[in-house]
Amino acid sequence: MNASVPPGSTSLVSRELLIEGEISGEESLHVDGRVKGFVRLSGDLFVGAGGVVEAEVEARNVVVQGSLAGKVTARQQLEIQPTGRFHGECTAASFEIREGAVFEGTSRMIDPAAAKSGSRSAAAKPA
């Protein structure tokens, strides 16, 4: 059954929605509402302009237009756009913080070479 799932699929947490708990899976997630807890994705996490995420996050890319607080690991890139606010502890292979964004907390870089070989082996798996 799960084999029919398109790997590039993006789930949406709409503005009026709150998810409390653990979210995990093989896709990307766009949050315009609220998420509290744990998020672990093989895809990307987008926090939309009205979105509020208070969670421990692990994802491929993390893009923040709204508010993100917690411990965040981006296997590739963490991007905080001008409207975005980040509070917490983050680990990423690369960063982009645009002017106007709020970044409060600690930052740690993953060795990009190690991250790249990791993602390459992960990409090779499904084939």
Binding site: S11, L17, L18, G21, G25, E27, G37
Partner: peptide, 27 residues
């Protein structure tokens, strides 16, 4: 027209989903 929330087949949620609006659940 607030946008329908969508939880895809590749996602697993343990916990509570609450709020208003419409939701399509495939996960």
């Amino acid at each position: 027209g607030q946008g329908t929330a969508f939880i895809g087949a590749g996602l697993t949620i343990k916990g509570k989903v609450s709020g208003s609006g419409n939701l399509i659940m495939m996960g």
